[in-house]
Design a protein around this nucleic acid. Structure first.
Length: 428
RNA sequence: GGAGAAGUGGCCGAGUGGUCGAAGGCACGCCCCUGCUAAGGGCGCAUCUGGGCAAAACCUGGAUCGAGGGUUCGAAUCCCUCCUUCUCCGCCA
Protein backbone atom coordinates (compact mmCIF):
# COMPACT_ATOMS: atom_id res chain seq x y z
CA UNK A 1 0.00 0.00 0.00
CA UNK A 2 1.18 3.49 -0.77
CA UNK A 3 1.60 6.05 1.96
CA UNK A 4 -1.72 7.84 2.14
CA UNK A 5 0.06 11.05 3.12
CA UNK A 6 2.01 10.92 -0.12
CA UNK A 7 -1.21 10.59 -2.09
CA UNK A 8 -2.72 13.58 -0.31
CA UNK A 9 0.37 15.75 -0.50
CA UNK A 10 1.56 15.02 -4.01
CA UNK A 11 -1.15 13.32 -6.01
CA UNK A 12 0.12 14.56 -9.36
CA UNK A 13 3.60 13.15 -8.86
CA UNK A 14 2.21 9.79 -7.73
CA UNK A 15 0.04 9.67 -10.83
CA UNK A 16 3.05 10.46 -13.04
CA UNK A 17 5.13 7.68 -11.55
CA UNK A 18 2.26 5.19 -11.80
CA UNK A 19 1.80 6.20 -15.42
CA UNK A 20 5.23 4.71 -16.17
CA UNK A 21 3.74 1.37 -15.11
CA UNK A 22 0.86 1.84 -17.49
CA UNK A 23 -1.50 2.62 -14.62
CA UNK A 24 -3.87 5.53 -14.98
CA UNK A 25 -4.61 6.75 -11.49
CA UNK A 26 -8.04 8.35 -11.29
CA UNK A 27 -6.89 11.49 -9.53
CA UNK A 28 -10.29 13.17 -9.80
CA UNK A 29 -11.92 10.23 -8.05
CA UNK A 30 -9.34 10.33 -5.31
CA UNK A 31 -9.66 14.07 -4.85
CA UNK A 32 -13.42 13.69 -4.56
CA UNK A 33 -13.07 10.90 -1.99
CA UNK A 34 -10.61 13.01 -0.08
CA UNK A 35 -12.88 16.06 0.04
CA UNK A 36 -15.81 13.97 1.16
CA UNK A 37 -13.67 12.27 3.77
CA UNK A 38 -12.47 15.53 5.19
CA UNK A 39 -15.90 17.03 5.76
CA UNK A 40 -17.46 13.80 7.02
CA UNK A 41 -14.61 12.99 9.35
CA UNK A 42 -14.39 16.49 10.80
CA UNK A 43 -18.13 16.60 11.37
CA UNK A 44 -18.19 13.15 12.96
CA UNK A 45 -15.26 13.84 15.22
CA UNK A 46 -16.74 17.14 16.35
CA UNK A 47 -19.93 15.36 17.33
CA UNK A 48 -17.95 12.67 19.12
CA UNK A 49 -15.97 15.28 21.00
CA UNK A 50 -19.16 16.99 22.10
CA UNK A 51 -20.70 13.73 23.24
CA UNK A 52 -17.55 12.75 25.11
CA UNK A 53 -17.27 16.01 27.01
CA UNK A 54 -20.97 16.05 27.92
CA UNK A 55 -20.79 12.43 29.05
CA UNK A 56 -17.84 13.31 31.19
CA UNK A 57 -19.87 16.09 32.77
CA UNK A 58 -22.62 13.62 33.59
CA UNK A 59 -20.09 11.45 35.28
CA UNK A 60 -18.76 14.33 37.33
CA UNK A 61 -22.24 15.52 38.35
CA UNK A 62 -23.32 12.04 39.35
CA UNK A 63 -20.11 11.57 41.22
CA UNK A 64 -20.94 14.62 43.29
CA UNK A 65 -24.51 13.42 43.72
CA UNK A 66 -25.96 16.29 41.72
CA UNK A 67 -28.75 16.28 39.14
CA UNK A 68 -27.53 15.54 35.61
CA UNK A 69 -30.83 15.34 33.78
CA UNK A 70 -30.35 18.63 31.89
CA UNK A 71 -27.03 17.52 30.43
CA UNK A 72 -28.41 14.08 29.68
CA UNK A 73 -31.25 15.63 27.71
CA UNK A 74 -28.76 17.69 25.72
CA UNK A 75 -26.56 14.76 24.78
CA UNK A 76 -29.54 12.59 23.92
CA UNK A 77 -30.30 14.94 21.05
CA UNK A 78 -26.92 14.19 19.46
CA UNK A 79 -27.51 10.46 19.09
CA UNK A 80 -29.24 10.28 15.74
CA UNK A 81 -26.99 12.66 13.87
CA UNK A 82 -23.85 11.14 15.31
CA UNK A 83 -24.87 7.64 14.36
CA UNK A 84 -25.73 8.69 10.81
CA UNK A 85 -22.38 10.41 10.45
CA UNK A 86 -20.45 7.48 11.84
CA UNK A 87 -22.14 5.09 9.45
CA UNK A 88 -21.56 7.33 6.46
CA UNK A 89 -17.90 7.74 7.44
CA UNK A 90 -17.43 3.98 7.80
CA UNK A 91 -18.89 3.43 4.34
CA UNK A 92 -16.65 6.08 2.89
CA UNK A 93 -13.60 4.60 4.57
CA UNK A 94 -14.43 1.29 2.95
CA UNK A 95 -14.55 2.85 -0.50
CA UNK A 96 -11.39 4.82 0.28
CA UNK A 97 -9.50 1.70 1.40
CA UNK A 98 -10.69 -0.27 -1.60
CA UNK A 99 -9.39 2.48 -3.85
CA UNK A 100 -5.96 2.60 -2.23
CA UNK A 101 -5.58 -1.18 -1.82
CA UNK A 102 -5.42 -1.76 -5.58
CA UNK A 103 -2.85 0.94 -6.37
CA UNK A 104 0.51 -0.70 -7.14
CA UNK A 105 3.83 0.36 -5.69
CA UNK A 106 5.82 3.24 -7.15
CA UNK A 107 8.85 2.20 -9.21
CA UNK A 108 12.25 3.20 -7.83
CA UNK A 109 14.07 5.95 -9.72
CA UNK A 110 16.61 3.41 -11.03
CA UNK A 111 13.97 1.25 -12.74
CA UNK A 112 14.08 1.49 -16.53
CA UNK A 113 10.90 2.93 -18.01
CA UNK A 114 9.12 0.66 -20.45
CA UNK A 115 5.76 -0.76 -21.41
CA UNK A 116 6.34 -4.50 -21.26
CA UNK A 117 9.07 -7.15 -21.16
CA UNK A 118 10.72 -5.65 -24.23
CA UNK A 119 11.69 -2.68 -22.07
CA UNK A 120 13.65 -4.81 -19.60
CA UNK A 121 17.36 -4.11 -19.40
CA UNK A 122 20.03 -6.79 -19.27
CA UNK A 123 22.42 -6.08 -16.41
CA UNK A 124 24.89 -8.91 -16.84
CA UNK A 125 25.54 -12.31 -18.40
CA UNK A 126 27.35 -15.11 -16.68
CA UNK A 127 28.71 -18.25 -18.33
CA UNK A 128 28.73 -19.30 -21.95
CA UNK A 129 25.92 -21.35 -23.46
CA UNK A 130 27.25 -24.74 -24.41
CA UNK A 131 27.62 -25.61 -28.07
CA UNK A 132 26.15 -29.05 -28.76
CA UNK A 133 27.65 -31.44 -31.30
CA UNK A 134 24.32 -33.27 -31.43
CA UNK A 135 20.72 -32.05 -31.63
CA UNK A 136 19.85 -30.79 -28.15
CA UNK A 137 16.60 -32.26 -26.81
CA UNK A 138 14.20 -30.51 -24.49
CA UNK A 139 13.69 -31.62 -20.89
CA UNK A 140 10.42 -33.40 -21.65
CA UNK A 141 12.05 -35.74 -24.12
CA UNK A 142 15.13 -36.19 -21.95
CA UNK A 143 13.09 -36.88 -18.83
CA UNK A 144 10.68 -39.29 -20.50
CA UNK A 145 13.52 -41.26 -22.09
CA UNK A 146 15.14 -41.50 -18.67
CA UNK A 147 11.87 -42.80 -17.31
CA UNK A 148 11.78 -40.06 -14.73
CA UNK A 149 9.28 -37.53 -16.03
CA UNK A 150 5.71 -38.68 -16.53
CA UNK A 151 3.17 -36.08 -17.58
CA UNK A 152 0.52 -38.57 -18.73
CA UNK A 153 0.20 -40.07 -15.28
CA UNK A 154 0.03 -36.57 -13.78
CA UNK A 155 -2.86 -35.76 -16.12
CA UNK A 156 -4.66 -38.89 -14.97
CA UNK A 157 -4.17 -38.07 -11.31
CA UNK A 158 -4.83 -34.34 -11.41
CA UNK A 159 -4.94 -32.80 -14.87
CA UNK A 160 -2.82 -30.56 -17.05
CA UNK A 161 0.08 -28.57 -15.59
CA UNK A 162 1.14 -31.17 -13.06
CA UNK A 163 4.02 -33.57 -13.16
CA UNK A 164 5.10 -36.92 -11.75
CA UNK A 165 8.80 -37.51 -11.17
CA UNK A 166 10.45 -40.82 -10.48
CA UNK A 167 13.78 -42.37 -9.64
CA UNK A 168 16.90 -40.34 -10.30
CA UNK A 169 14.99 -37.28 -11.48
CA UNK A 170 12.85 -37.22 -8.32
CA UNK A 171 16.04 -37.53 -6.33
CA UNK A 172 17.75 -34.79 -8.31
CA UNK A 173 14.77 -32.56 -7.64
CA UNK A 174 15.09 -33.24 -3.92
CA UNK A 175 18.85 -32.81 -4.03
CA UNK A 176 18.52 -29.39 -5.62
CA UNK A 177 16.27 -28.12 -2.85
CA UNK A 178 18.62 -29.47 -0.18
CA UNK A 179 21.63 -27.98 -1.91
CA UNK A 180 19.99 -24.57 -2.13
CA UNK A 181 18.89 -24.61 1.52
CA UNK A 182 22.33 -25.67 2.70
CA UNK A 183 24.08 -23.02 0.63
CA UNK A 184 21.87 -20.18 1.81
CA UNK A 185 22.03 -21.17 5.47
CA UNK A 186 25.73 -22.02 5.62
CA UNK A 187 27.16 -19.41 3.25
CA UNK A 188 24.67 -16.54 3.07
CA UNK A 189 23.47 -16.28 6.66
CA UNK A 190 19.81 -17.20 6.23
CA UNK A 191 17.71 -18.95 8.87
CA UNK A 192 15.77 -21.91 7.55
CA UNK A 193 12.05 -21.82 8.30
CA UNK A 194 9.13 -24.16 7.80
CA UNK A 195 5.73 -22.53 7.32
CA UNK A 196 2.07 -23.30 6.51
CA UNK A 197 1.15 -23.87 2.88
CA UNK A 198 -2.40 -22.70 3.51
CA UNK A 199 -2.81 -19.10 4.63
CA UNK A 200 -5.66 -16.78 5.58
CA UNK A 201 -6.87 -13.77 3.58
CA UNK A 202 -5.08 -11.28 5.86
CA UNK A 203 -1.73 -12.82 4.95
CA UNK A 204 -2.55 -12.67 1.24
CA UNK A 205 -3.49 -9.03 1.63
CA UNK A 206 -0.27 -8.32 3.49
CA UNK A 207 2.02 -9.31 0.64
CA UNK A 208 -0.29 -7.88 -2.03
CA UNK A 209 -1.89 -10.94 -3.67
CA UNK A 210 -5.28 -9.79 -2.39
CA UNK A 211 -7.57 -8.11 -3.16
CA UNK A 212 -6.51 -7.75 -6.78
CA UNK A 213 -5.21 -11.16 -7.82
CA UNK A 214 -7.55 -13.67 -6.25
CA UNK A 215 -8.09 -15.45 -9.57
CA UNK A 216 -4.44 -16.52 -9.57
CA UNK A 217 -4.87 -18.40 -6.30
CA UNK A 218 -6.23 -21.80 -5.35
CA UNK A 219 -8.81 -21.56 -2.60
CA UNK A 220 -9.79 -23.99 0.11
CA UNK A 221 -13.29 -23.35 1.43
CA UNK A 222 -14.05 -24.30 4.99
CA UNK A 223 -17.17 -25.43 6.75
CA UNK A 224 -17.54 -22.19 8.69
CA UNK A 225 -17.75 -20.12 5.49
CA UNK A 226 -14.22 -18.75 5.67
CA UNK A 227 -11.50 -19.84 3.30
CA UNK A 228 -7.81 -20.45 3.12
CA UNK A 229 -5.54 -20.05 0.12
CA UNK A 230 -2.78 -22.30 -1.13
CA UNK A 231 0.40 -20.26 -1.17
CA UNK A 232 1.61 -19.15 -4.63
CA UNK A 233 5.06 -18.60 -3.12
CA UNK A 234 6.72 -18.93 0.29
CA UNK A 235 7.00 -15.15 0.21
CA UNK A 236 3.46 -15.01 1.61
CA UNK A 237 3.77 -17.05 4.82
CA UNK A 238 7.39 -16.10 5.45
CA UNK A 239 6.98 -12.34 5.04
CA UNK A 240 3.84 -12.47 7.16
CA UNK A 241 5.93 -13.76 10.06
CA UNK A 242 6.42 -10.08 10.92
CA UNK A 243 2.85 -8.94 10.26
CA UNK A 244 1.60 -6.85 13.20
CA UNK A 245 4.97 -7.14 14.89
CA UNK A 246 7.42 -4.59 16.19
CA UNK A 247 10.90 -6.04 15.71
CA UNK A 248 13.86 -4.95 17.82
CA UNK A 249 16.34 -2.83 15.88
CA UNK A 250 19.15 -5.18 16.90
CA UNK A 251 17.35 -8.16 15.31
CA UNK A 252 17.47 -6.63 11.83
CA UNK A 253 18.06 -7.79 9.22
CA UNK A 254 15.92 -10.92 9.45
CA UNK A 255 16.97 -13.33 6.72
CA UNK A 256 14.81 -16.39 6.09
CA UNK A 257 15.14 -19.19 3.58
CA UNK A 258 12.24 -21.54 3.02
CA UNK A 259 11.54 -24.47 0.74
CA UNK A 260 7.87 -24.93 -0.12
CA UNK A 261 5.62 -26.10 -2.88
CA UNK A 262 3.93 -23.21 -4.70
CA UNK A 263 0.42 -23.33 -6.17
CA UNK A 264 -0.72 -21.11 -8.99
CA UNK A 265 -3.93 -21.37 -10.93
CA UNK A 266 -2.25 -19.82 -14.00
CA UNK A 267 -5.55 -18.30 -15.02
CA UNK A 268 -5.10 -16.37 -18.21
CA UNK A 269 -2.03 -18.27 -19.33
CA UNK A 270 -3.83 -20.86 -21.47
CA UNK A 271 -1.62 -22.00 -24.28
CA UNK A 272 1.58 -20.56 -22.79
CA UNK A 273 4.33 -23.03 -21.92
CA UNK A 274 1.92 -25.93 -22.06
CA UNK A 275 4.72 -28.40 -22.69
CA UNK A 276 6.82 -29.67 -19.82
CA UNK A 277 7.60 -28.36 -16.38
CA UNK A 278 8.08 -24.68 -17.10
CA UNK A 279 4.62 -23.52 -16.02
CA UNK A 280 2.90 -25.73 -13.48
CA UNK A 281 0.02 -25.49 -11.03
CA UNK A 282 2.37 -26.94 -8.41
CA UNK A 283 6.10 -26.45 -8.20
CA UNK A 284 8.78 -26.29 -5.54
CA UNK A 285 10.76 -23.19 -4.81
CA UNK A 286 13.42 -22.17 -2.32
CA UNK A 287 12.61 -18.62 -1.33
CA UNK A 288 14.80 -15.96 0.24
CA UNK A 289 13.10 -13.31 2.37
CA UNK A 290 14.71 -10.35 4.09
CA UNK A 291 13.19 -7.94 6.60
CA UNK A 292 15.53 -4.95 6.78
CA UNK A 293 16.09 -1.42 8.03
CA UNK A 294 14.70 1.06 5.45
CA UNK A 295 18.13 2.53 4.84
CA UNK A 296 19.57 -0.86 3.96
CA UNK A 297 17.04 -2.24 1.52
CA UNK A 298 18.73 -1.22 -1.72
CA UNK A 299 22.01 -2.72 -0.68
CA UNK A 300 20.09 -5.80 0.48
CA UNK A 301 18.48 -6.21 -2.95
CA UNK A 302 21.88 -6.42 -4.62
CA UNK A 303 23.07 -8.93 -2.02
CA UNK A 304 19.95 -11.04 -2.24
CA UNK A 305 20.17 -11.26 -6.02
CA UNK A 306 23.80 -12.26 -5.56
CA UNK A 307 22.76 -15.10 -3.26
CA UNK A 308 20.43 -16.44 -5.91
CA UNK A 309 23.13 -16.02 -8.57
CA UNK A 310 25.54 -18.03 -6.42
CA UNK A 311 23.34 -21.10 -6.86
CA UNK A 312 23.40 -20.78 -10.63
CA UNK A 313 27.15 -20.28 -10.59
CA UNK A 314 27.78 -23.30 -8.38
CA UNK A 315 25.62 -25.36 -10.71
CA UNK A 316 27.53 -23.84 -13.64
CA UNK A 317 24.37 -22.84 -15.43
CA UNK A 318 24.70 -19.86 -17.81
CA UNK A 319 22.32 -17.06 -16.94
CA UNK A 320 21.66 -13.40 -17.31
CA UNK A 321 20.39 -10.79 -14.90
CA UNK A 322 17.68 -8.46 -16.07
CA UNK A 323 16.28 -5.31 -14.48
CA UNK A 324 12.54 -5.35 -15.08
CA UNK A 325 11.14 -2.18 -16.56
CA UNK A 326 8.29 -0.17 -15.03
CA UNK A 327 5.65 -1.84 -17.18
CA UNK A 328 6.74 -5.41 -16.42
CA UNK A 329 7.09 -5.28 -12.65
CA UNK A 330 4.77 -6.95 -10.20
CA UNK A 331 2.15 -5.12 -8.18
CA UNK A 332 4.08 -4.73 -4.91
CA UNK A 333 7.63 -4.25 -6.15
CA UNK A 334 9.63 -1.03 -6.21
CA UNK A 335 12.34 -2.77 -8.23
CA UNK A 336 12.84 -6.29 -9.53
CA UNK A 337 15.74 -8.22 -10.99
CA UNK A 338 14.92 -11.40 -12.86
CA UNK A 339 17.55 -14.08 -13.23
CA UNK A 340 17.11 -15.99 -16.46
CA UNK A 341 18.78 -19.35 -17.04
CA UNK A 342 19.90 -20.57 -20.44
CA UNK A 343 17.65 -23.26 -21.89
CA UNK A 344 19.31 -24.82 -24.98
CA UNK A 345 16.15 -26.43 -26.36
CA UNK A 346 14.36 -23.09 -26.38
CA UNK A 347 17.55 -21.35 -27.43
CA UNK A 348 16.81 -18.58 -24.97
CA UNK A 349 17.05 -17.42 -21.38
CA UNK A 350 14.05 -18.20 -19.14
CA UNK A 351 13.14 -16.76 -15.76
CA UNK A 352 14.33 -18.88 -12.86
CA UNK A 353 14.39 -16.27 -10.10
CA UNK A 354 12.75 -12.96 -9.37
CA UNK A 355 14.30 -10.73 -6.71
CA UNK A 356 12.45 -7.65 -5.50
CA UNK A 357 12.60 -4.81 -3.04
CA UNK A 358 9.14 -3.82 -1.88
CA UNK A 359 10.34 -0.98 0.33
CA UNK A 360 7.53 -0.26 2.83
CA UNK A 361 4.71 -1.27 0.47
CA UNK A 362 4.11 -4.70 2.01
CA UNK A 363 5.16 -3.56 5.48
CA UNK A 364 2.46 -0.89 5.45
CA UNK A 365 -0.20 -3.43 4.47
CA UNK A 366 1.05 -5.77 7.21
CA UNK A 367 1.91 -3.16 9.84
CA UNK A 368 5.34 -4.76 10.07
CA UNK A 369 7.54 -2.40 12.04
CA UNK A 370 10.75 -2.09 13.99
CA UNK A 371 11.74 0.17 16.86
CA UNK A 372 14.07 2.72 15.32
CA UNK A 373 17.03 4.64 16.71
CA UNK A 374 14.63 7.07 18.41
CA UNK A 375 12.77 4.14 19.95
CA UNK A 376 9.76 4.84 17.74
CA UNK A 377 7.97 2.22 15.64
CA UNK A 378 8.75 2.58 11.95
CA UNK A 379 7.85 0.43 8.95
CA UNK A 380 10.47 -2.10 7.88
CA UNK A 381 11.39 -2.78 4.28
CA UNK A 382 10.77 -6.24 2.86
CA UNK A 383 12.53 -8.11 0.06
CA UNK A 384 12.36 -11.53 -1.44
CA UNK A 385 13.73 -13.59 -4.26
CA UNK A 386 13.72 -17.12 -5.53
CA UNK A 387 16.85 -18.94 -4.70
CA UNK A 388 15.82 -20.73 -6.93
CA UNK A 389 12.70 -22.19 -8.50
CA UNK A 390 13.49 -25.88 -8.08
CA UNK A 391 11.46 -27.27 -10.99
CA UNK A 392 12.95 -24.86 -13.49
CA UNK A 393 16.43 -25.54 -12.13
CA UNK A 394 15.83 -29.23 -12.77
CA UNK A 395 14.77 -28.39 -16.33
CA UNK A 396 17.93 -26.33 -16.81
CA UNK A 397 20.15 -29.15 -15.59
CA UNK A 398 18.48 -31.76 -17.77
CA UNK A 399 18.87 -29.58 -20.83
CA UNK A 400 22.30 -28.11 -20.18
CA UNK A 401 23.91 -31.31 -18.88
CA UNK A 402 22.41 -33.70 -21.44
CA UNK A 403 24.75 -36.02 -23.35
CA UNK A 404 24.50 -37.48 -26.82
CA UNK A 405 23.46 -40.91 -25.54
CA UNK A 406 20.49 -39.46 -23.66
CA UNK A 407 22.08 -39.60 -20.22
CA UNK A 408 22.47 -36.48 -18.09
CA UNK A 409 25.59 -35.58 -16.11
CA UNK A 410 25.18 -34.54 -12.49
CA UNK A 411 26.66 -31.10 -11.70
CA UNK A 412 29.74 -31.41 -9.51
CA UNK A 413 28.18 -29.23 -6.80
CA UNK A 414 25.48 -31.85 -6.27
CA UNK A 415 27.78 -34.84 -5.92
CA UNK A 416 27.30 -35.06 -2.17
CA UNK A 417 23.53 -34.96 -2.55
CA UNK A 418 23.24 -37.74 -5.13
CA UNK A 419 24.99 -40.56 -3.32
CA UNK A 420 27.99 -40.43 -5.58
CA UNK A 421 25.94 -40.78 -8.74
CA UNK A 422 27.72 -39.08 -11.66
CA UNK A 423 24.94 -39.20 -14.21
CA UNK A 424 21.31 -40.11 -14.76
CA UNK A 425 21.52 -43.09 -17.07
CA UNK A 426 18.95 -44.49 -19.50
CA UNK A 427 17.09 -47.59 -18.28
CA UNK A 428 18.34 -50.76 -19.93
C1' G B 1 -15.21 -33.14 19.43
C1' G B 2 -16.83 -32.27 25.08
C1' A B 3 -16.11 -29.36 29.88
C1' G B 4 -13.82 -25.24 32.22
C1' A B 5 -10.48 -20.73 32.55
C1' A B 6 -8.27 -16.67 30.26
C1' G B 7 -6.75 -12.68 26.46
C1' U B 8 -5.08 -5.12 29.12
C1' G B 9 1.01 -0.96 26.64
C1' G B 10 7.88 -3.51 24.59
C1' C B 11 7.18 -7.25 28.90
C1' C B 12 4.67 -8.46 33.70
C1' G B 13 0.29 -6.94 35.96
C1' A B 14 -4.07 -3.99 38.61
C1' G B 15 -8.60 -2.41 37.09
C1' U B 16 -16.74 -5.42 37.14
C1' G B 17 -20.58 1.23 34.24
C1' G B 18 -18.43 7.66 34.94
C1' U B 19 -12.59 13.01 35.66
C1' C B 20 -9.48 5.41 32.95
C1' G B 21 -5.76 5.68 27.49
C1' A B 22 -5.55 2.82 31.82
C1' A B 23 -2.37 2.01 39.01
C1' G B 24 2.11 -0.46 40.07
C1' G B 25 6.51 -3.03 38.55
C1' C B 26 10.31 -4.42 34.86
C1' A B 27 12.82 -2.74 30.61
C1' C B 28 14.28 1.70 28.07
C1' G B 29 15.83 7.23 27.61
C1' C B 30 17.48 11.94 29.88
C1' C B 31 19.12 14.38 34.36
C1' C B 32 20.93 14.56 39.52
C1' C B 33 23.55 12.35 43.62
C1' U B 34 27.43 9.06 45.00
C1' G B 35 33.47 7.65 43.63
C1' C B 36 33.45 2.33 43.58
C1' U B 37 30.91 -1.84 40.84
C1' A B 38 26.29 -1.84 43.01
C1' A B 39 22.75 1.25 44.37
C1' G B 40 19.62 6.04 45.50
C1' G B 41 16.53 10.19 43.65
C1' G B 42 13.82 13.16 39.74
C1' C B 43 11.57 13.36 34.98
C1' G B 44 9.96 11.00 30.55
C1' C B 45 8.13 6.74 28.05
C1' A B 46 1.51 2.93 23.83
C1' U B 47 -0.18 2.99 18.73
C1' C B 48 -2.83 4.86 14.64
C1' U B 49 -5.09 9.15 12.99
C1' G B 50 -8.14 14.13 11.85
C1' G B 51 -8.24 19.45 11.93
C1' G B 52 -5.94 24.41 12.55
C1' C B 53 -1.96 24.15 8.03
C1' A B 54 1.52 23.88 2.62
C1' A B 55 5.50 22.58 6.23
C1' A B 56 8.10 22.78 11.24
C1' A B 57 7.03 24.15 16.11
C1' C B 58 2.72 24.44 18.63
C1' C B 59 -2.54 24.00 19.69
C1' U B 60 -6.83 20.95 19.63
C1' G B 61 -9.75 16.58 18.51
C1' G B 62 -10.92 11.16 17.26
C1' A B 63 -10.12 5.86 17.55
C1' U B 64 -7.84 1.71 19.82
C1' C B 65 -7.69 -2.85 26.37
C1' G B 66 -7.85 -10.33 21.19
C1' A B 67 -11.59 -9.20 16.63
C1' G B 68 -16.49 -7.76 15.20
C1' G B 69 -21.38 -6.46 16.64
C1' G B 70 -24.94 -4.78 20.62
C1' U B 71 -26.90 -2.25 25.30
C1' U B 72 -25.98 2.88 27.42
C1' C B 73 -25.76 9.86 27.76
C1' G B 74 -21.15 7.08 28.85
C1' A B 75 -18.00 0.31 28.10
C1' A B 76 -11.34 -2.32 29.49
C1' U B 77 -15.76 -3.35 32.72
C1' C B 78 -22.46 -5.68 30.82
C1' C B 79 -24.63 -8.90 26.47
C1' C B 80 -23.91 -11.74 21.62
C1' U B 81 -20.75 -14.00 17.79
C1' C B 82 -15.96 -15.30 16.36
C1' C B 83 -10.54 -16.04 17.03
C1' U B 84 -6.50 -17.49 20.04
C1' U B 85 -4.14 -19.57 24.43
C1' C B 86 -4.17 -22.73 28.81
C1' U B 87 -6.17 -27.09 31.87
C1' C B 88 -8.90 -31.77 31.91
C1' C B 89 -11.42 -35.64 28.89
C1' G B 90 -12.01 -38.03 24.01
C1' C B 91 -9.80 -39.04 19.17
C1' C B 92 -5.41 -39.17 16.23
C1' A B 93 0.07 -39.46 12.58
Amino acid sequence: MLDIQLLRADLAQVADRLATRGIALDTAAFAALETERKTLQTRTQDLQAKRNSLSKQIGMLKGKGEDASAVMAEVAGLGGELKANEEALAQLQERYNAFVAVIPNLPHASVPVGQDEHGNVEVLRWGTPRVFDFPAKDHVEIGEKLGGLDFETAVKISGARFSVMKGGIARLHRALAQFMLDTHTAEHGYTEVYVPYLVNPDSMFGTGQLPKFEEDLFQVPRADGTKLYLIPTAEVPVTNIVRNEIVDLAKLPLKFVCHTPCFRSEAGSYGRDTRGMIRQHQFDKVELVQIVHPEKSWQALEELAGHAEAILQKLELPYRKVALCTGDMGFSAAKTYDLEVWLPAQNTYREISSCSNFEAFQARRMQARFRNEKNKPELVHTLNGSGLAVGRTLVAILENYQRADGSVAIPKALAGYMGGMEALELPR
